[in-house]
Each structure stands twice: as structure tokens, then as C-alpha cells.
Amino acid sequence: MTRIHSSVTSISWIPREAVEGIQKLSFRTGLGHYDLPPPDVIEDAESLIAKDAIRFANVLSSWIEVENGRITGYGFDDGSKGLIGSTRVRVAPKGMNLVFPAVAYPVLRPEPEADAGAVRFVQTAGGRPGMPLPRHVKRKPFVQISGPTVWTTLALTIRADGDAALELKGASSFPRHWVYDGAGKLALKTGLIDYRKWYFESFGSHSPWGREDSEAVVASVESSLERQLSVQIINRDPQWRRLSPGDVLVTQGDAGDDVFLLFDGILRVERDGDLVAEVGPGAVLGEIAALGGGPRTASLVAVTRCRVAVVPHSFLDRDSLERLAADRRLDT
């Protein structure tokens, strides 16, 4: 008999400029803080929580037992759990902090779906910030004091041959959720943040603990080079553009020397009217025309609501842009 283990982990963090409305002021004044992008590979979600580098994590770890090619047993590992950090609020210039321990909700695990060849495990983990967030809401009781609910719902299928597949079945619309495979490598991410929806609607029955999940918009992972460039772009105080579904960011053939960072949402890349790709948050676009001074080589069209950071290419490291452009040419 052989026992096969696998896992999937989501970690959730607040990117810079992700908070909207009056709450944004607390981040700009330093009372709260945004998070740096997590690493491409993680070893231990608990250490990231301890360092206040992420807000919460969902660790789904499970096993199956196989004999003569058939699954004879299965279950969740002891390490399968939810992790949620505290909210730290700076109250003095010298760094004094108020710490509000978060409220973790019970981990939800429906009965695994099993047959002779595979088992599918599902786990929901999350909770709410410990710091009070009083606000008016549109339904009874019309005022909420406790913070909104955050969560992810992960699925992991382990097959008798040892293969495993992961899914992000659902998630709160805030903050950003990244998902890592059993080797700790970044595998996928949510493509859309909706802070206002989360802030005003994610409480009471509107969460998995009230039997209501939210489908996650999932995006592919950008390159490590794009992640480096994204930090440069955000740090250069970019202009921001908001797009509705169907809006065109750039049109193939137009001139332009700006570079774009897709901060939130999904964009469709079209060339000669044909779909080339769909890209999600973290994608850096427009570098080929910007570097060469020629026309745009593709059109960029919003699939969902999008927020895009825009900077002149001269604001960025030219060598990095040239490497990104070279990689793109190899892919076409």
C-alpha cells in the first residue's frame, strides 16, 4: 500500500492602491499598511503570517492510500488549516502599534468526493479583521461594526497515479489571493479585486459560513520580470485608468510610448482581430512599441472591469523592458 500526499495553499495580501474610499486615507497616512508582493515560491505560510507579510492563508493538505492501482483510504492531514493574522495600526511616529487579533472562523470541509481513481478535497478558511470597521450597509441591520469576512475555498484532486490538480473554487472579492501548488510554487491568482463590494456586502449570510460563496475570477501568473517592473511602475506615481468591459486601452497600429501595468482585471490581447491571449493582474504591456517608437503591435480590450497604471517608458529600467520585449517576440 502506498500513501500519497499533496497540498495547495492560498495566501491573501493587500496590494498598494487596492483600498478605496475613506479607508484609503488610513493607508496613505501610515495608520495601516499595504503589503509587498509575496514570493514566487513559499515554504511556510505561518512564517509569512508571523512577519505580517500577508493577511491570511488557507492550507489544504491531504492524502490518499493506493493499493493495486485503487484508492483504499483518504483524509486531510493535520497540517490542513486556516491561518489569519492580526491587524496592526500605527498610532505614534515612533512606531507604537495597536494590535487587533483577527477572528478566525471554523474551517469548512465537506465530505471528499471519492471513487476508485481519484479523491477531490475541498476546504474553506477565513475570518474577519479584529479591528472594528463601523459602516452603513444596504440591508438589515443597516449598520455593521465588525469587519467584513475574508475567505478562500480551495479544491485539491489527488489521483491514484500520483497526479494532483488544484482549484480556487471561490473567494472573497478582497484582498488579492495567490494560490501555490504542493511544491510551494505560485500557480494562479485572482484577477479582480472589488473592495467596495467586500466592504459593504461580505457579512452575515453573504459568505460560505452563511452558505454563500463567491466565484473567483482566476488569472494566469505573470513572469518574475513583470513582477519586478510592476514595483518600478507603482513606485513612479503612475497615472491610473479605469476600464469597463469592452473598453479599448490601446488599438493596434496606434502610436504610443507609454507602458501599462494591469493592476486589476482581465485584458484581452488581439492581433489583426484574433485573440492572442488573456492577461491578468501584474501583466506589463506596451513595451515593444514604446521601445521601438513604432505602432502598437496589438489591441488591448477589457474583459472585466480593469484598473491600469500608466507610465512613460523612460521612467523604467530600459534593460528590463528590452528583456521583456525579447521574451514576447520569442513567444509569438
Rank of each mutant, 00 (worst) to 15 (best):
V179D: 02
Y180T: 02
G182D: 06
G182I: 13
G182L: 12
A183L: 04
G184W: 13
G184L: 08
K185S: 09
L188Q: 10
L188C: 09
T190G: 00
G191P: 03
G191I: 13
I193C: 01
I193E: 08
D194R: 14
Y195A: 12
Y195T: 15
Y195W: 13
R196N: 13
W198F: 11
W198M: 03
W198Y: 07
W198K: 03
F200S: 10
S202R: 04
S202Q: 15
S205E: 12
S205H: 01
H206S: 09
H206G: 05
H206K: 08
H206Q: 07
H206T: 06
S207C: 02
S207D: 08
P208N: 00
P208G: 01
W209S: 01
W209D: 02
G210I: 09
G210K: 07
R211C: 03
E212K: 06
D213E: 05
D213L: 02
D213M: 08
E215S: 14
A216G: 01
V217N: 01
V217E: 14
A219I: 06
A219H: 07
S220Q: 15
S220G: 13
E222Q: 13
S224L: 12
E226S: 14
E226C: 15
Q228H: 06
L229S: 05
L229P: 04
S230C: 06
S230Q: 13
S230E: 09
S230Y: 05
V231Q: 13
V231D: 10
Q232I: 06
Q232M: 09
Q232W: 05
Q232T: 05
I233R: 05
I234Y: 04
N235I: 09
N235G: 03
R236Q: 05
R236A: 14
R236V: 01
D237P: 02
P238L: 06
W240H: 07
W240E: 11
R241W: 00
R242Y: 04
L243A: 05
L243F: 07
L243G: 14
P245W: 07
P245F: 11
P245S: 02
G246C: 05
G246F: 09
G246P: 04
D247S: 05
V248I: 15
V248G: 06
V248N: 14
L249Q: 15
V250S: 13
T251N: 14
T251S: 15
Q252V: 11
G253I: 07
G253T: 11
D254A: 14
A255R: 11
D257Y: 03
V259L: 06
V259N: 01
F260A: 00
F260R: 05
F260V: 00
L261T: 11
L262W: 07
L262N: 11
F263I: 08
D264Q: 13
D264G: 12
G265Q: 00
L267V: 08
L267Q: 09
R268Q: 15
V269M: 09
E270G: 10
R271D: 06
